[in-house]
Amino acid sequence: MTVRAGDALPPLRVPITRTLIVAGALASRDYQDVHHDAEAAKEKGSPDIFMNILTTNGLVGRYVTDHFGPRARLRKVAIRLGAPNYPGDEMVLRGEVTSVADGAVEVAVTGANGIGNHVTGTVTVRLPDADAPRTDVPAASSAGPAVSAAPAEDPR
């Protein structure tokens, strides 16, 4: 897989359901009522429940690793939230490679919903070919075949 600055990742459409918002909040151990209780959210000035930042973070990470494959390792995820993700909306994640250096790829990610940009951020991911000498990856992957082929064949 040859990665170049300017490469675009295919967009990922994420329907923002109540189920996703609540499941994401609970999976991240976040019991703030604004992420599961619509009445409480209204009391606090929000029109409805909204997605928590940990879920957004998880979705952004998944978006990038879905593209680069299971042997790519996230090194850094930095996100800023804007328009909240309310139920019934849809978020479209898009990414563009902004730099490639020593096996580390930096991707600029945006997630737009019906109101505006829910998230803007930067993700740094290390591709497996640069990981060969590392000891912190599972043995199976460091012993694998030519590492550069793995992510490109990922059918997703």
Partner: peptide, 27 residues
């Protein structure tokens, strides 16, 4: 549970935790 919620089917997990779970372990 995290991978189910995020729709993350990467075979890298659960041998390691998704790195973006970092904060979840502190909650």
């Amino acid at each position: 549970h995290w991978c189910e919620a995020m729709g993350d089917t990467s075979p890298a997990y659960p041998e390691i935790a998704p790195p973006t779970m970092l904060q979840a372990w502190t909650m």
